[in-house]
């Protein structure tokens, strides 16, 4: 089919680390930059070149990122007859490409798509797939020593693993996006793949945008509320505070389970992962599954009546007291400062 064994391929003897790279209109997505950094570090443990694969064309901005992150070769996967996401077709194209490169490891970001494509690749090849990796290095030609997250990062597993190629996805948090010490002169070529009808059994039929509001995942400030807010009505002052700060509201699972707030606002292992500059967590105890969603917040302030609540061991600052009293007072204080600064006429 579309497979080409290119004679200029120079990696046959040593093999390569292959990294699936996702991008959007702004270029390579952050999770993929982390995945590339992880893949480069794995490759450098045995001097293995790093090859990046994108489905579709490598734009100038993507190429710059790949150079900066030390990618030796970029491959544009051309999947004939499809221009949308189709997980099995993507996996099959990676499978064929990897055969032509003597690939020792295939890495993807731990995104919905990254995990799904790698799961399909594992299923199609019968190879094991290890998700949520934090670190990996070869201890000999076939054995990888790795660390990976469990419980959404509340626990870390150290393990050893045999299998070539190794299929690995990279944890959402815990791996930094680090440019290479020197940029690479990334070569670009394409690789064509013609999917069968079966390979196209699943594909995106349509994308529907949703407007409005500060998106929780991207918010710079998040005002969080837990069971301690007390009721649906109790969220009134939190909403007002969020409005004043240009913040998004985030909640605990206790709140969504009670039906006080929609699940789209849930922060945590089974909700949204946030990484704001400030997370103000009110009346939330700080269960591991909640903390899993806010580990990458820059600053955390928590308000709780209980000075021994676990969140106080995971925050920068705390106020001990009743949310129902403190938040309305905070709203008034902020309004007063704002109008004070506007100055008397």
């Amino acid at each position: 089919m579309g497979r080409r064994r290119l004679s200029e391929t120079t990696h046959e003897s040593t093999g390569v680390v292959l990294c699936l790279v996702e991008y959007d209109d702004d270029g390579v997505i952050d999770s993929s930059l982390r995945a590339i950094s992880f893949a480069r570090s794995l490759g450098s443990s045995s001097n293995t070149p790093l090859v990046a694969a994108t489905v579709g064309a490598v734009s100038p901005s993507i190429l710059t990122a790949l150079q900066t992150f030390g990618v030796d070769e970029a491959i544009e996967l051309v999947i004939e007859g499809v221009d949308t996401y189709a997980p099995l077709a993507w996996a099959r194209s990676l499978e064929q490409l990897s055969q032509s490169l003597a690939t020792r490891a295939i890495v993807a970001a731990g995104t919905d798509r990254g995990n799904e494509v790698m799961a399909y690749l594992g299923a199609a090849t019968g190879l094991p797939m290890v998700a949520n990796c934090l670190r990996a290095s070869w201890s000999d030609a076939t054995t990888i020593a790795l660390s990976r997250q469990r419980w959404a990062g509340s626990l870390i597993e150290d393990a050893v693993f045999d299998g070539v190629p190794a299929l690995l996805t990279v944890a959402f948090d815990g791996v930094a996006a680090e440019p290479a010490s020197t940029p690479a002169p990334t070569k670009v070529r394409d690789f064509h793949f013609s999917p069968s009808e079966d390979d196209l059994g699943v594909k995106v039929a349509e994308w529907i945008g949703r407007g409005g509001g500060v998106a929780l995942a991207d918010a710079r400030v998040v005002v969080g509320g837990g069971r301690g807010v007390g009721s649906e009505e109790g969220f009134g002052p939190l909403d007002e505070l969020a409005g004043l700060l240009g913040a998004a509201v985030g909640v605990s699972r206790a709140v969504t389970s009670a039906g006080w707030r929609p699940h789209a606002q849930q922060v945590g292992q089974t909700g949204t992962r946030i990484s704001p500059d400030l997370y103000l967590a009110c009346g939330i105890s700080g269960a591991t599954q909640h903390l899993a969603g806010c580990r990458s917040a820059k600053r955390v302030v928590t308000i709780n009546t209980d000075p021994d609540a676990p969140f106080l061991s995971r925050a920068d600052y705390a106020v001990v007291g009743d949310v129902a009293v403190i938040i309305p007072a905070l709203v008034e204080a902020i309004k007063a400062r704002k109008s004070g600064r506007a100055g008397p006429a």
């Binding site: 094991p128 150290d158 995971r314 007291g321 009293v325």
Partner: peptide, 28 residues
């Protein structure tokens, strides 16, 4: 399975004990 677990560990957290700004509305 193919992945041989060697050990589990609880990760060190970026934050430890919070600094208490104050109690009740006095902290606002």
């Amino acid at each position: 399975g193919p992945v041989k677990l060697e050990r589990l560990r609880v990760p060190s957290e970026p934050r430890e004990r919070a600094e208490i700004i104050g109690h009740g509305v006095d902290a606002v």
